[in-house]
Structures are given as C-alpha cells and as structure tokens.
C-alpha cells in the first residue's frame, strides 16, 4: 500500500468512525483536536486501525504523533514491519 492509498484509507475509516468531515482530515491538522478524541476514543482508534490494516498499535506508538501526517508515517512504518 503506497502513501496515497494509506491516506485515502485512513480518511475513509476515521471520518466514518469519528463522524468527522473528510475535508478536515488534512496532513498538517492536529489528529486529536480534529477527531475530538478523548481517552476512550483512543481505544476505538486502536480498533479501527486493526480492522483496516491488521496490526495493533500501542500507547507507545502514539508518542510523538501530533498531525495526520505523523499518523500516516506511523502506518507506513507498521505496514513495512508486518
């Protein structure tokens, strides 16, 4: 899966899961603020990532993830490790 495909997939499932307009999911936008994530929502973020990419992320993986761009890079890295 190339980066563009990752971006499209992520936009699709995040907008559906967190009921956010896809247009708001921009590379430099803040992931937590855009998706309005609270502590419980991070659990569901783990679930939708696993459902769509087949790997499980941990709290440590999210250290340093601020923007969607950071998140796409994390997904890229995890997919390469699979």
């Amino acid at each position: 899966m190339n980066r563009e495909e990752i971006i499209n997939t992520v936009k699709e499932f995040l907008s559906e899961e967190f009921e956010v307009d896809k247009a708001k999911i921009q590379p430099d936008a803040n992931l937590q603020e855009t998706l309005d994530l609270d502590s419980l929502d991070y659990v569901d973020l783990v679930v939708v990532i696993e459902e769509n990419f087949g790997f499980k992320v941990t709290g440590e993986d999210f250290v340093g993830i601020t923007t969607f761009d950071d998140f796409y890079t994390l997904v890229e890295k995890k997919l390469e490790e699979k």
Partner: peptide
C-alpha cells in the same frame, strides 16, 4: 485481545 472490543 481485550483492547480490540472497543471502548463501548
């Protein structure tokens, strides 16, 4: 895995 049951 227990996390994957989701927060609800």
């Amino acid at each position: 895995d227990t996390t994957l049951v989701g927060s609800g």
